[in-house]
Nucleic acid binder design. Structure first.
Length: 788
DNA sequence: ACGAGGGGGGTTTTT
DNA sequence: CCCCCCTCGT
């Protein structure tokens, strides 16, 4: 009785808590626990809070956490949500089934794999593995690898899988086939079939297979479908606008019995169409669930008024959207600052200075800042500038830790030991470290495996049938023995012990240890880090789940599956909490920062040149910009550069069309001219012709091959006199080795003198000011003196 | 078997 | 420019 009262009291207390913290639509979205629910949630509208409370509420209402499946976009989001829920409901939160689509399905597939003919410890091929396999298939088929590029074929296969089209269906699919034919790649369907078969023989699934095979599992095995339909009584899907048709199909199937499915999304923030995501899912959802309750969260708690206004201004240029108006009560903010800079490095310096200044003025910390860009390669110039001001930063995304060569090699050993059929891993290590198995031998094994329709490993176990010479055979025997000796220990050892064993027996760690070069040291440290990671994983797993029904999964296969789905975002590196964060806009989805910098707002960069062929493309880029600016809570700074290097070639840039869309009332403009011009006059080159005194640019660039370090001073040539209101784009002498371009306003007056002949493939230029003191050196040929 | 050096190709975003 | 791949030399 007392217990019941307690429960009631806590329910009441909780209800009050919820009511206090949630606004009306949020509260409705939380408490509508039965039946299909769709929450359209604008940026900063408390979407995560609603999801968190909804799950907590479900648990408090007596739903078993084991029966709740919550699919998020990143593992980190899941982890954070789990923590927040456990603050409300306690340790029960641990039993929630939470994670990304990919990781949750991988977990289920691990349990059910054998039904599909896969081993339980199947490997997950990452994109590199997949492309490498495709590359060898293309080669084996004797196809022209200029025409059949692995990346391209991979993309085709990926799109097919995301539309639930298997190899057989692909071969009969009019759209796919006609596209391939007109692209001159009629063999694509065949390659798809071969690829799928090879993956199967290798006991491997790629990322898309995790969805595709999950779907197959539910379709082919009604008892499995039944099992999971009843296991999960409540489904929650975050970032629904970024799900693809395969994901939607699976969600529909899983929720078909109870229809307790809650999707949360924002059509205006859909930015993953390129990997099959479709807003159509949101529209279909209304069609497929007539009883659907829809809630719109339109109040933004994150950003100040100017930012929200600008966001609304921008998104209204898109034709395709669900009507909603985001509003905020925070009306005391400052305007968005828009900076025009001369070059990429100038932009970097500006941002670094602004961060420095804002830190001082507002007593903000490094972690309050984020710099967002369209492409990963843009981080370089920013890094340089931040480093010069000693501002600690951390880059998210880009080449992940697990993709480094030495790490991949080490992991390949673990993969082969866990699943010897894993072809890609086997190929990596079969002769690494060198053990006398040549490329030719490996090719013979591949051919034989093809012939026998089996994995490479099975050939290695019986290498006699290849009729290879005795020397090669004995090398293979030795290799097989090595792997088998590891496998024998698999049962009694956890992942960490196995990893240590591998490091010792293969000599991998020792080899790296011996290498005392800087790179070698780095590689050694990476392996150490990897081993630490394995250790953390094993201890964590066994501790956390000790008293629970959940099985500890600290074995090698589980570890491997987990890391292959880990993103850089999930990686909480030491000290990254005190750093400025650099990432692509895509990676910033779902995050927020007090001060946000959106850099490189130039036409052909953002929007990307690759995404301007259709209205849909442009609209996705616009949504991406919308996502970018709505990350900012208080300060938003946008910048663009007038020049940018691309393949070592300097190009003049136009400001992004999106800058205009912000609206002049929401922004202040800074830079060389006071106002942002919608179009920059393209007369950059003309003035030059008038001013230049000779034609050093006409000479072939690679005429002089003196290395940069041997800096001689050839005779000077007077080229031009800079007049007032001219701008010289040049390079600081100290920046020479990095080739950083700067805009020098100081050169209001002065003589520009140039010389040629320094640096490989480059023409260097030296500028003197009138006082003959400051020397500024140009590394690049394309000096321009322009009038503003 | 490995490295240096030439040649060619790429230019988006990611689970 | 940068990175990958191929070749050729040791």
């Amino acid at each position: 009785m007392a217990k019941l009262i307690c429960l009631l009291l806590s329910l009441v207390a909780m209800e009050i808590d919820f009511l206090a913290e949630l606004n009306e639509p949020q509260r409705l979205a939380v408490t509508q626990t039965q039946g299909p629910v769709m929450i359209i949630a604008g940026p900063g509208s408390g979407k995560t809070r609603v999801l968190t409370y909804r799950i907590a509420y479900l648990i408090k209402m007596g739903v078993d956490p084991f029966k709740i499946l919550s699919l998020t976009f990143t593992n980190k989001a899941a982890q954070e949500m789990r923590e927040r829920i456990s603050q409300v409901v306690g340790s029960e939160a641990r039993n929630l089934f939470m994670g990304t689509f990919h990781s949750v399905f991988a977990r289920i597939l691990r349990i059910e794999a054998e039904k599909l003919g896969y081993p339980r410890n199947f490997t997950i091929y990452d994109t590199d593995d997949a492309k490498s396999l495709l590359k060898s298939i293309i080669k084996e088929e004797g196809l022209n690898d200029k025409l059949y590029k692995p990346a391209n074929i991979f993309y085709r296969i990926s799109s097919a899988k995301n539309s639930l089209i298997g190899p057989a269906a692909y071969a009969n699919n009019v759209d796919f086939i006609s596209d391939d034919e007109s692209a001159g790649r009629p063999k694509t369907a065949e390659l798809y079939a071969k690829y799928a078969n090879r993956c199967f023989l290798a006991g491997a699934m790629d990322f898309d297979d995790l969805l595709f095979k999950m779907h197959e599992l539910l379709v082919k095995f009604p008892e499995v479908l039944y099992k999971y339909q009843h296991k999960f009584s409540h489904l929650l899907i975050d970032e629904f606008q970024d799900t693809n048709s395969a994901q939607y199909d699976i969600v529909q199937r899983l929720s078909a019995v109870h229809e307790n499915v809650c999707v949360v999304g924002d059509d205006a923030q859909s930015i993953y169409a390129f990997r099959g995501a479709t807003i159509q899912n949101i529209l279909n959802f209304e069609r497929d669930y007539p009883d659907l309750r829809v809630f719109k969260l339109e109040q933004n708690y994150r950003s100040t008024e100017f930012i929200v206004n600008a966001a609304n201004q921008i998104i209204k240029n898109n034709s395709n959207q669900i009507a909603k108006t985001i509003w905020t009560e925070k009306n005391d903010g400052e305007k968005i600052k828009i900076f025009k800079t001369a070059s990429e490095s100038d932009e970097g310096r500006l941002i670094a200075n602004l961060i420095f200044e804002q830190k001082m003025r507002n007593h903000w910390l490094n972690q309050d800042f984020a710099i967002l860009y369209r492409t990963n390669s843009q981080s370089r110039a920013l890094e340089e500038a931040l480093r010069k001001l000693n501002i600690p930063y951390r880059i998210y995304g880009g080449t992940s830790f697990y993709q480094r060569k030495e790490v991949k090699d080490f992991i390949a050993y673990m993969r082969v030991i866990s699943n010897p059929k894993d072809e890609e891993a086997l190929k990596r290590i079969i002769n690494y470290p060198a053990r006398g198995i040549s490329d030719n031998t490996v090719n013979t094994i591949i051919v034989k495996a093809q012939e026998k329709e089996c994995s490479l490993w099975e050939i290695c176990e019986n290498p006699e049938i290849t009729q290879l010479p005795g020397r090669a055979l004995s090398s293979i025997y030795a290799f097989v023995m090595l792997v088998k000796s590891f496998r024998a220990e698999l049962k009694e050892k956890d992942a960490y012990q196995m990893a240590m064993e591998i490091g010792r027996k293969t000599g991998l760690v020792e080899d790296l240890y011996k290498d005392k070069t800087v790179e070698g040291l780095g590689r050694y440290e990476n392996i150490q880090e990897l081993l630490n990671g394995v250790k953390d994983y094993t201890t964590q797993e066994s501790q956390e789940y000790e008293e629970d029904e959940v099985q500890p999964e600290s074995d090698l296969a589980a570890y491997l599956q987990q890391i292959s789905l880990l993103t850089d975002m999930d990686n909480n590196k030491e000290g990254s909490n005190e750093k400025v964060k650099l990432m692509t806009v895509h990676a910033a989805k779902g995050l927020e920062f007090p001060s946000v910098f959106v850099v490189g707002m130039e036409e052909n960069l953002f929007p990307s040149a690759m995404s301007m062929s259709s209205r849909e493309d442009i609209e996705e880029e616009r949504r991406l910009f919308y996502v970018a600016i709505t990350r900012a809570k208080e300060k938003l700074t946008i910048s663009y550069a007038l020049t940018r290097y691309k393949f070592g070639q300097m190009n003049y840039q136009d400001p992004s069309r999106f800058i205009e869309e912000i609206g002049v009332d929401n922004a202040e403009y800074f830079g060389k001219t006071a106002k942002v011009e919608p179009k920059i006059e393209s007369n950059w080159g003309n003035k030059w012709d008038e001013n230049r005194g000779n034609s050093i640019f006409d000479k072939p660039l690679n005429e002089n091959k003196t290395p940069l370090t041997k800096l001689n001073v050839p005779p000077l040539k007077k080229v031009a006199t800079v007049q007032k209101s001219h701008v010289v784009i040049s390079t600081d002498l100290k920046d020479l080795k990095e080739g950083v371009m700067v805009l020098h306003e100081k050169f209001d007056k002065g003589t520009v003198t140039m010389m040629e002949g320094v640096g490989e493939n480059k023409i260097a230029t030296i500028l003197f000011d009138d006082f003959g003191q400051k020397k500024i050196m140009l590394k690049f040929a394309k000096l321009k003196i322009i009038e503003i």
